[in-house]
């Protein structure tokens, strides 16, 4: 791999390799010296056009544990907010000798463009592009699901995962549909029809407009954040109605199989898509997701940067 732009580009073996690598690297997190010399002398730039402190910190921790130098370049208060183009920023980073650029951008395809427009030699890691993809989030979700439900490793064959919420605008959902199905899981998207994209029938997953019928057959359920501006744009009539139809509360939680886990990419809207008691229950794995995020991002950085940059095999 040279870049990580989309979960759709990862095949099963690559996905398992990333998860296995993350598992090995996770062991380092448990020791007193959490640092590895592996990426000493390499420079990772976090280029964030959107605020996302948790994703940025996760990448920063991952890079630092591998001894890479980390430069943070966020839109606010930088040349980017003064109207500098992505191209000119890229040329600047190239001049600084960036080996990898972790890009968070509001425009779908921005990471793809940065990787392929010829502006820069660095590896590009997509940390979320518009409403397209967020592949490391999907990797950490898959890692978390595997840890709980397929602890012997390998893929996620036979598992059933529901993704509930604003599918239309969700890069997390897109990446997860690709990655989880690549790993053998069955994915069901649950949302009102207004929040499901036209063309979804081409996706490798099932769609349900109702949450209740899918509850008793899922191994993992992922609740997506619903932004209040969606309500203003008339995607659904009211927050209350949304939460009644699609929110995960204690009653619905009790109908999940006993082994089922609850994921949320954060930040949560308690009381909207997830009730407070569900968010705080032992079935919710959000805190683990955060920890696993660092391991998965270490794995991605290792696999992209540690070798000679040519594709193996």
């Amino acid at each position: 791999m040279r870049h990580l732009l989309s979960a759709g580009e990862i095949d099963r073996d690559q996905a398992v390799l990333i998860l296995d690598t993350a598992a090995e690297l996770g062991a380092v997190t448990d020791r007193s010296i959490k640092k590895l010399p592996t990426l000493r002398g390499r420079t990772v730039v976090n280029l964030f056009y959107e605020d996302s402190t948790r994703t940025r910190i996760s990448f920063e921790a991952a890079a630092k544990r591998l001894s890479a130098d980390v430069l943070n370049f966020s839109a606010k208060g930088s040349s980017v907010s003064k109207g500098e183009s992505l191209k000119d920023t890229a040329l600047t980073l190239q001049a600084m000798g960036a080996d990898a650029v972790v890009l968070r951008h509001g425009s779908s395809g921005a990471a793809h463009r940065l990787a392929h427009a010829g502006w820069i030699d660095a590896s590009v890691i997509n940390a979320g592009d518009g409403t397209h993809e967020h592949p490391t989030q999907a990797l950490l979700d898959a890692f978390t699901i595997r840890r709980h439900l397929a602890p012997e490793g390998g893929d996620l064959a036979g598992l059933s995962v529901a993704i509930v919420g604003d599918i239309l605008h969700s890069r997390v959902a897109r990446s997860n549909v690709h990655l989880l199905t690549t790993l053998g899981a069955r994915v069901t998207l649950v949302a009102p029809p207004t929040l499901i994209p036209v063309g979804v029938e081409s996706w490798p997953c099932a769609v349900s407009y109702e949450l209740d019928p899918v509850l008793d057959s899922v191994d993992a359920i992922m609740m997506l954040r619903v932004q209040s501006e969606r309500m203003q744009a008339a995607y659904f009539p009211s927050a209350l109605e949304y939460s009644r139809l699609y929110g995960l509360d204690a009653a619905r939680l009790s109908r999940l199989p006993e082994h089922a886990i609850v994921l949320h990419p954060g930040p949560m809207n308690r009381g909207m898509e997830i009730s407070a008691d569900v968010a705080d229950s032992s079935r919710a794995v959000m805190v683990e997701q955060v920890a696993n995020g660092v391991n998965v991002r270490m794995a991605v950085l290792y696999l992209l940067l540690a070798g000679d940059g040519k594709d193996a095999g």
């Binding site: 592009d129 518009g130 397209h132 994209p197 036209v198 063309g199 029938e201 081409s202 996706w203």
Partner: peptide, 18 residues
């Protein structure tokens, strides 16, 4: 709107022009 609305726009995450 960014591109034709359909299967491809749903995958690329670009707002559809129906």
């Amino acid at each position: 709107a960014q591109m034709n609305e359909g299967a491809l726009s749903s995958r690329l995450g670009l707002a559809g022009w129906p």
